[in-house]
């Protein structure tokens, strides 16, 4: 898929575990895991907003377009 999710990179930079992120953004572990492993087909703006707020980053830090 051309859109790569770099969630694990940002999580490592902020030293945050998946469990912690899941609690803070109020998403289930399974959903976050789907996102992290690149299996997600789409992401809601509200979810992206919550993740960016918690990880203190921009959407471009999490989502990357690769040819």
């Amino acid at each position: 898929m051309p859109i790569v999710v770099n969630l694990d990179v940002m999580m490592a930079k902020r030293k945050m575990s998946l469990n912690e992120l899941s609690e803070k953004v109020e998403l289930t572990l399974s959903n976050l895991s789907i996102l992290k492993t690149g299996k997600a087909k789409a992401i809601r703006f509200s979810t992206l907003e919550a993740i960016c707020k918690v990880l203190e980053c921009q959407p471009g830090d999490i989502l990357e377009f690769v040819e």
Binding site: K39, A40, A42, I43
Partner: peptide, 8 residues
């Protein structure tokens, strides 16, 4: 439905 389930 599958797309919706994989929409986070």
């Amino acid at each position: 439905q599958n797309d919706n389930e994989l929409t986070i």
